Amino acid sequence: MPELWTPDSPSRVIRGDNLEVVAGLPDGAFTIVYLDPPFNTGRSQTRQSTTSVRSASGSVRGFKGQQYERIRGDLMSYDDHFEDYWSFLEPRLAEAWRLLADDGTLYLHLDYREAHYAKVLLDALFGRASFLNEIIWAYDYGAKSKNRWPTKHDTILVYVKNPNGYHFDSTAVDREPYMAPGLVTPEKVAKGKLPTDVWWHTIVSPTGKEKTGYPTQKPEGILRRIVQASSREGDWVLDFFAGSGTTGAVAAALGRRFVLVDQSEESMAVIRARFAKSGVDVEFVTPDD
């Protein structure tokens, strides 16, 4: 089996079950871990789940002991649909935490229906001090509901490995126009403002240059803010659910190195075509080859 990855490797795209793949990656190697898992929308999905995870202290079921077990039990008894979803997601989050560098940041991109559950459990699992932000990505595209407020946002939960020593560089983030430019000085208008924790950003346009045809593709602008703020040039970025490869494309454009993991043949084909078109230097690895 080929070597999956070391810090001396080039950027890589690894095909396989992400839980099995990341178990072979070294502790503390990534400055950003971004997870955009399948949303638990009630549709039938085929997933492999497991209850064992690796950590520095061995196989564990949570880092906060009884408090975590109680909270998880309460939530699972409250909503049985959540139990299956969290059994899938929980061991992947534990691996993500292991893989984060001491100054690293976890970004968990979720549907609004799961964000409140995940926030409570992540607080219990990793500690409330590690919570940094709840980012709301707001957009205005698609069907408009007639019997409730139309739902036009995703949630991104942000947790840092070390609350006293994480990397965050607001000066590296692209600035955006003021919504009320008449209320600030011309100098500030020209400079723009830093994004807040509400990100107004369009989805990937069906006719735009970014479009790859992958159904859950995220816009480069969202990942660009994440990578700019929470990593430096040369740092490693990991994406468990690579999809169309947006994380890798953005990381490469910003001078970061990356590891992408996905099991889907469709994902691999889209990523190969995307990187071939952009000229990004990347190795494709299948562990079973």
Rank of each mutant, 00 (worst) to 15 (best):
E220D: 11
S44Y: 06
P186F: 13
S87C: 08
F258N: 03
S230Q: 04
D262Q: 04
I136K: 07
H153N: 03
G24L: 08
T6M: 05
Y117W: 12
V261Y: 00
W97I: 09
N133L: 11
A124F: 08
S11K: 05
V227I: 15
S278D: 08
Y178S: 13
P206F: 01
Q228E: 13
P195C: 08
W5P: 02
V259N: 03
L35A: 13
G234Q: 12
H109M: 01
V270S: 02
T247F: 01
E134Y: 03
G16E: 04
R274A: 00
K209T: 12
R272C: 00
S170E: 15
T246A: 02
F168I: 12
R257A: 02
N133A: 12
G73Q: 08
R256A: 07
F88K: 05
M76C: 14
E3P: 08
K211E: 12
A172P: 06
G245W: 06
T185P: 02
D235K: 10
F241W: 04
F275M: 14
E83Y: 06
D17W: 04
Q228A: 10
A143C: 04
T51I: 07
S264H: 01
D74E: 15
A273I: 07
G243L: 01
G42I: 05
A251E: 06
T196D: 15
A253N: 06
V198H: 07
K64R: 15
A276K: 10
L260N: 02
V280Y: 05
D140G: 06
W236C: 06
S77E: 14
L4D: 10
H201T: 14
V22P: 09
A172L: 09
A56E: 09
A249F: 00
L125I: 00
R98Q: 11
E176I: 15
D102F: 01
P37W: 05
W199R: 09
I32D: 00
V237N: 06
R70P: 00
R256W: 01
P195Y: 02
G234S: 14
L100Q: 14
G127C: 08
F131I: 02
G127T: 09
W86D: 06
K218C: 07
S52K: 09
S87N: 14
L100F: 12
D8C: 09
L254K: 10
R113Q: 15
V282E: 01
P186K: 12
P206K: 09
I222R: 05
P215Y: 03
G255S: 09
S9D: 10
T51L: 14
Y112E: 13
F240A: 00
T207C: 05
S44L: 14
L157V: 07
R256L: 09
V13H: 07
L89F: 03
